[in-house]
């Protein structure tokens, strides 16, 4: 491809994204009752989830002895999980799910022909606005929990919280796009979503619970090899628990891991596109 031609028609990514967001909203609002039902059903999932932990805390004072994750501290953690997941679900999930389908049907051809970065296009084309209802739920839960816990987070921690939330989203997105890229090689990849769910399952709990001869290596793998334990643990810690030196080390590492995840998944995605052979017609 001619390099100059490529640069001259360089699209304004922000404007394209704004159009995507607008179009998705218009479509969501066209089927308004469907939108409301979807919002309600994902909210009911959140309520059930909360119900489960309320039940657990009926029986126990904390998750792990001496970890500090009492009921409301854990609810700060839980709302952080919900923030991250709702963002991932709203912005990336519907698109990445579709990507595997596009590979299978050959629809990816059209995405590749467009004069815009393919990864950008397939990652953000659709936004599921109804998933953001969970974000609101998490906001309320976070507010209530913060008013109940003993520890008051510092201003610095409160500022760093949203930053690390975004790092978490970026890590999960990278994982997702890397997994989706494998569908180019594997053809059918129906287990993708399951796999993603099962892997991120590890990120849902405080990392202290992974102890012992199996737990410790598991914690290390999911901190250093596939850094999903950082996703929720780092930001949640900033708000819920007094910070120790170790937390700062982890926080520094989290930035590094985010950058590495994004770069690694980008590399993998491009490799996958290279080996993509259009299917069907």
């Amino acid at each position: 491809m001619d390099r100059t031609a490529k640069t001259s028609m360089r699209p304004n990514y922000f404007r394209v994204f704004a159009v995507f967001a607008r179009n998705s909203l218009v479509r969501d609002m066209t089927f308004r009752s469907n939108f409301i039902i979807e919002a309600i059903s994902s909210l009911s999932w959140m309520f059930m989830n909360l119900g489960f932990y309320l039940l657990v805390f009926e029986y126990t004072p904390s998750i792990g002895q001496g970890t500090g994750w009492g009921k409301y501290e854990y609810f700060v953690f839980l709302s952080t999980t919900m923030f991250v997941n709702s963002l991932v679900q709203a912005f990336f999930m519907p698109n990445v799910e579709e990507f595997s389908e596009q590979v299978r049907t050959g629809g990816l051809d059209f995405a590749m022909l467009k004069p815009i970065d393919t990864q950008f296009l397939i990652s953000l084309a659709k936004i599921d606005w109804s998933s953001l209802s969970n974000f609101v739920f998490a906001l309320v839960l976070l507010g209530v929990s913060l008013s109940r816990i003993v520890y008051t987070p510092s201003l610095g921690a409160a500022i760093l919280y949203p930053l690390y939330l975004l790092c978490g989203v970026a890590i999960l997105y990278s994982l997702m796009i890397a997994l989706a890229a494998t569908s180019v090689w594997l053809g059918r990849n129906q287990n993708l979503y399951d796999f993603w769910f099962y892997i991120t399952n590890f990120s849902r709990y405080p990392m202290e619970i992974y102890q012992g001869p199996i737990g410790t290596p598991l914690r290390q793998v999911f901190t250093f090899a596939i850094p999903i334990l950082i996703v929720v643990n780092v930001p949640a810690r900033f708000l819920a628990l007094p910070l120790v030196e170790e937390d700062w080390l982890l926080a520094g590492y989290a930035l590094l891991a985010t950058a590495a995840s994004l770069a690694g998944s980008r590399w993998m995605f491009l490799r996958a596109l290279d080996s993509y052979r259009s299917a069907s017609s």
Binding site: T67, P206, Y210
Partner: peptide
């Protein structure tokens, strides 16, 4: 995989 996290979760809960 979820069983693994459940084992750890409940081990932590029981320890508390």
């Amino acid at each position: 995989l979820p069983i693994v996290t459940q084992i750890f979760l409940w081990t932590a809960v029981f320890s508390a």
